[in-house]
Design a protein around this nucleic acid. Structure first.
Lengths: 344, 344
DNA sequence: ATAGGTTGATTAAACGATACATCAAGAGAC
DNA sequence: GTCTCTTGATGTATCGTTTAATCAACCTAT
């Protein structure tokens, strides 16, 4: 491969000249519109190949108003959950010729606002957003006003006129909690996750609901909200271990927090899977390989991504029906981290 | 938030009318170019706010030829390594006003070609690419010809006139291998990773180099290439465990493969951290929390992302110097998965 | 032979933002 | 009062593509 000699990029006018046809004919060849003889089509295609033509989508979008760009906003791309989500979403969208452009909000509402603006400015045909904590409906005012199809995911934003695809967090938390209750646990903590995201509230409600169903009144002191990160899980576990009246089980906001909690308990000399039961959410690929293998509630990030893509594609195809809310049914995956309460 | 009523999007012409100025003035206000009184600037800004103006970057790009889009191609966004990489890259680029658009090649060379075309068509100002396996230099011909700044990462593509930022894979493999050799291991397998990616070859060379340095001739039968995935690590471990002359240590292509190997060995009744030593690459956030905690070679995905961004920004600022190859120094993180060979 | 159809290709007007060239008006110098 | 400078603002061509409106041949049927 030899050194670069920056070439001016060829336009359809250059192709037209080389193929001795008009620009309109080139455009038609490009889009399969209009009518033309097979011979000229070949000539045009040969010319495009020779000059290394690549169509300027921006210019086309300017003229037609149509675009194949889809803006995707996630709040933490380094979290494997969103990695899986994004991979599935991308596969489904690009199969239909769309180009998802993925940006990371880092759970910063200001950055989310800026990115939404930026995406609109680039003329996206649609949006898929996992909203940041603290998202206000007005943050999406421009999207709404422009009538750009937008599917929200994972975290619901209340009163926004958009489709939503996510896990059924209420049921998921109930599943996890009931699993512990059925094992005889009564003093159960709920660790991690930030109020401000709908996900947390729904899981918290599910947690409460299951407890009350078993005649247990939730103990405010056992609700430990915090960033959904390993570090928080670890410190929370240590605090719980140091409490006067230790808990026998912990429901964690996600597997990452759960892993942190396992580390924290281990450091505190408490044996997970024996002295204490731990349950997470997400069924991260690694969770079954931990020691002990983690009980978790599978919430299907790939399905959420795939469904979000399908929903958005329907909207792009012109479906104008009322926004739909879908909560995918979760599944409990019981493993060794959450044994029944021992007789002791 | 009320229902949608798709508004036509306002252009600078609309702003100009409302503010009773010319389009040129609006454009100047937008870009801070030209001269204008503070009063008119305020009028223009008020008009933009009132109508909810958002600038059409595509149109601007068409006119100016300048763009703030950066194409980013990774080969597996669901791999946490690339998640970390992408997050760091994005942070650095967006701090300078660029918008990285991230796409996933899924390690498919055809898809990579298509995506490169697509990105060029969208007028990216620059590219950051972690090339797929089987990438040919000609796949980047258009990028080279157009003179678009392009930084390759993680895997080097030979004979391509681009900057490269990655780990020093040769040294990394030597580090990991020497650690095992120093522990007295002699029968060491190298598991996972596909020939076809430069990364694999360099690591393989580093592995060989360390062995030979200790007077050990590499045994072809102990080289077990395969997809860098958990499943492969697992099957490879089982095969190794079933061999007549079992290995005492395994160097894995990355932590994911290493985790798979741990599972495989466990299933085969071989105790990792006792009967067999396992070393990985990447230092995934979870690797220290596994049982036993994994010895790994840290290759700093965030640093690779940050350096790639810095390099690209320099190019965008006009640096035309010869392409540079940077290999970031790795670091061995010794944990319990790789004890010295026991006397037995 | 002429009217009407079909086929294959062309012309030119958009799309939204930018930037060069131009200009009006007021300030200051003589 | 004329001349030059500066400040603030405008008119308009342009980027690359699409597409509606035309048009030139040629074919076919009367």
């Amino acid at each position: 491969m030899t050194a670069a000699k920056p070439t001016k990029k060829p336009t359809i006018a250059d192709i037209a000249k080389l193929a001795a046809v008009s620009v309109a004919t080139v455009s038609n060849a490009l889009n399969g519109t209009g009518r033309m003889s097979a011979r000229t089509r070949r000539r045009v295609e040969a010319a495009m190949a020779e000059l290394g033509f690549v169509r300027d989508h921006g210019a086309a979008k300017l003229r037609t108003g149509r675009s194949k760009l889809i803006g995707v906003l996630v709040n933490d791309i380094s979290n494997p959950f969103f990695g899986e989500f994004a991979a599935a979403l991308e596969a489904a969208l690009s199969a239909r010729g769309f180009l998802p452009i993925l940006a990371n909000t880092g759970d910063d509402a200001d950055r989310q606002r800026a990115l939404l603006d930026e995406m609109l400015g680039h003329g996206v045909a649609g949006l898929v957003v996992s909203p940041t904590i603290g998202t206000q409906p007005e943050d999406f005012a421009l999207v709404r006003d422009r009538g750009i199809p937008c599917v929200t995911c994972v975290r619901e934003v209340e009163d926004a006129p958009f489709d939503f695809i996510g896990a059924d967090d209420f049921s998921a938390a109930r599943l996890g909690t009931r699993h512990l209750l059925d094992g005889g646990h009564a003093k159960i903590a709920f660790v991690g996750g930030l109020p401000g995201a709908a996900t947390w509230h729904r899981r918290c409600d599910g947690f409460f609901s299951a407890l009350r169903e078993h005649g247990i009144e939730p103990d405010e002191d056992l609700i430990r909200p915090g960033p959904a990160m390993r570090a928080f899980g670890r410190t929370a576990a240590r605090q719980l271990a140091d409490m006067g009246h230790p808990v026998s089980a912990v429901l964690c906001f996600n597997d990452i927090v759960a892993l942190g909690a396992c580390i924290g308990f281990k450091e505190a000399g408490v044996l997970v899977g024996k002295d204490v039961a731990v349950v997470g959410f997400d069924n991260l690929p690694d969770s079954e390989a931990w020691t002990p293998p983690l009980t978790t509630v599978e919430v299907y990030p790939r399905s959420i991504g795939a469904n979000a893509a399908a929903r958005l594609l329907r909207r792009l195809d012109g479906d104008e029906s009322h926004p739909e809310i879908s909560r995918l049914a979760p599944r409990l995956i019981a493993r060794q981290s959450s044994p029944p309460l021992s007789g002791a």
